[in-house]
Design a protein around this nucleic acid. Sequence first.
RNA 1: GCCCGCGUGGUGGAAUGGUAGACACAGGAGACUUAAAAUCUCCAGGCCGAAAGGCCGUGCCGGUUCGAGUCCGGCCGCGGGUACCA
Length: 868
Amino acid sequence: MSRYSAAEIEAKWQSAWDEAGIFRAERSRDKPKYYVLEMFPYPSGRIHMGHVRNYTMGDVIARYRLATGHSVLHPMGWDAFGMPAENAAMASGGHPKDWTYGNIADMRGQMKPLGLSIDWSREFATCDPEYYGQQQALFLDFLEKGLVYRKNAVVNWDPVDMTVLANEQVIDGKGWRSGAEVEKRELTQWFFKISDFSEELLEALDGLENWPAKVRLMQENWIGKSRGIEIPFERTDAGAPLVCYSTRPDTMRGASFIAISPEHPVSRELAQDNPELEAFIAETRKMDTTEAAMEKAEKKGIDTGITVRHPVWPERELPVWVGNFVLMDYGTGAVFGCPAHDQRDLDFARKYGLEVRNAFYLPGQEKDVETEALVPAKTETVIYIDHFAGIGEATSQEGIDATIDWFEAKGLGTGQVKYRLRDWGLSRQRYWGCPIPVVHCDTCGVVPEKKENLPVELPYDEGGTPIDFSIPGNPLDRHPTWRDCKCPSCGADARRETDTMDTFVDSSWYFARFTAPDAQTPTRMEDAEYWMNVDQYIGGIEHAILHLLYSRFFARAMHICGHLPEKAIEPFDALFTQGMVTHEIYRTKDDKGRPVYHLPEDVTDGKLADGTPVQIIPSAKMSKSKKNVVDPVNIIDAFGADTARWFVLSDSPPERDVEWTAAGAEAANKFLGRVWRKAHELAERRDAGVVDLDRSLQEIMDAYELGVNQYDDELMRALHKTIDEVTKGVESFGFNAAIARIYGFFNQLSKTQASASTQWRSMRVLAQLMSPMTPHLAEEVWSMLGGEGLVVDTPWPVADEAMLADDSVTLPIQVNGKRRAEISVPKDMDKAEVEKRALAHEAVARSLDGAQPKKVIVVPGRIVNVVV
RNA sequence: GCCCGCGUGGUGGAAUGGUAGACACAGGAGACUUAAAAUCUCCAGGCCGAAAGGCCGUGCCGGUUCGAGUCCGGCCGCGGGUACCA
């Protein structure tokens, strides 16, 4: 071989690793364990650059930990249930199971060439009955412990297709296939009691020191703890008081109306003999169920005609409205409207001619609210207007606290801590998911299936013919025989639950299953005890809230049921959230002005082959419909896996989005070629007898003494700095910085006049440093240069502290914050002497132009700033 | 709407509050070559200047600081999440 050939090298070293069984995770007594996990993929059929990026990062960590003497668990599996499989079956007539397993085989085939250090013996898919059967066992345990319950909840209903729609399937309030106006429908569904853990999940966030602060903050806000008060408002008619919840009771004086949810019992009751109200409630039922849609929708209301008395000033009667913006799920489903201090209430009041009355002013700005509500932060000071608790100037927080205390003392209200977090509805009216293992019996009601009857398996066909997915609705519902079963309790004829579980359930415990994928129970305690927790979890920021919060809940619930040790209730010790891989979009318009997308290979210099100019939209998330997906398989075929790996790690910091460019991949390949050639050249010189091979590398490194030769000294110092920086880079996800340092060092190595022996040593260390990122090339270089065994098995190099320190430093000198000169001084020179030398500098003197410095700031080893 | 991020040369990006633009791409000049490819060397934020050097510059406006890309406040733009996409 006379030039770098990734194809030859990569196949060779992958078989070498396989033969050595290096990536099989084994419990070890004398090594520390390390569990590194990347969020497992949905088997869409093709891997994309985002996968390559995600798994390469995990692989760098896993290989680094192997080199630092850890027993490493690095598994892979498939998040295999979900809607795309059913959609594919609807579109092209296949079966979700065949589609999914076919995709898994394809994707595994695309991932294997990447040379990831994965223990493939632990692989599973969540649609394997062995996996979801254990999930059903978990469900039954949760049921027994009261962690699951049933209640009514609202779903999107497509009245034409007669099917439940996911939020994603509702477009502008219409069903995505039928185009029919979507309605809301109430169904009895299963819920996990995650809300019981609100406080715990919130408090434990503080302990997650190795999670990004932004993720913890997002979870904190999602859980949404607030202190407020429930206040009953007496009705002027005979009805029971309306209880409102407020987190800003200090604005009570400004209360001018009550708004209740359309779902509120009072709304429903009044609607019975008020057709106008009934129509209004029906109208609000057509809205999307998403929070975003509700918040953005026009705020509308209708006056119920009933009134309540203000609890502090009973002579004031407030009208009660039904408002489409009031959520039944949060608080009490009733709020008091205070237009002066809430923009939404103000808009509502202006629209319907309701009173606007200030409860406080800002100091020095004693004017009434007109078009913009006055909403102070809780720490901001305001001046209350005839506040009943007798406070005047105070912060909002003090106002809130005083109000709650006053109401409680008078027996007019109750202070309450509430959370925004709602229970997790897990029922899905779909086929391709884990069946909920319960049975409905006419005499016994809802009965859990017996554990020995698990798994409750999905039927593949219906009466001998494969299930037809072109018929809308849930195939489990209409299946001729699957529903029929015996009641586990009384033995009478009964019906299976036909709802399946949310796919978030599948991904809420897979990390625990990886510790013992063959166990006959959900986990095996001794394995969970050994491998948990996940030391480093890596995945997309889009999972910052739901997946990660659900997993934290699941780990707690599994601990309660005896499936995880207590230390695992926070299952992910460290979390890293990576950015997306993006690509330009190329767009033209057809004659009706509709967008038409083009593949990157069809566009040259911003034009199509026929010369039509193309609009280029930068940095969009890769998606099939926009035709901007770059298939990593093409890159691997053209340049090899190491090039793809090197590229996805090199240019962009891993937490940020990365733009895919073809040129970037070529550049990566070019560099790897240079490294290969350098090793090849040194090997040739070794063969010619120039290089001494007698001693091991670490011995030579340890024995190296400075001063033999200045070029050797320079190179060795640079090498140790490189070891230090690459090590730090790998440990802190600074892969791009580590790679820049490797470039820098290699450029220096290419130009050095150091001895062949020193170059040879440096090159071997460089192979070690590159091995987590480009493992195949590293093995090749290692072996060319006579390294013993496999580099993947070789201990990580350690930088010598003594080689890191420089004797002198270059200090920039600023005059009034602008750089004017620099001086080179011994590292430990004292401040006064540095100051003297700085002021003596000719450029500084010129800059001062005779002026006397007022102050000179010397930051040792950093900078000098002369202030005039 | 709400919550959380991000914004730096032609491009990707670097920079514990301390020399803004490391490293790389694209570009320019040169070497090698009959030529091209490949490879190698050098140049390169903008403006002014022959040069020395000067001025400007990290989305916009303001603040803190001897010193701000970095910290604080207010905007603008883009992205993620928003509970049934995974």
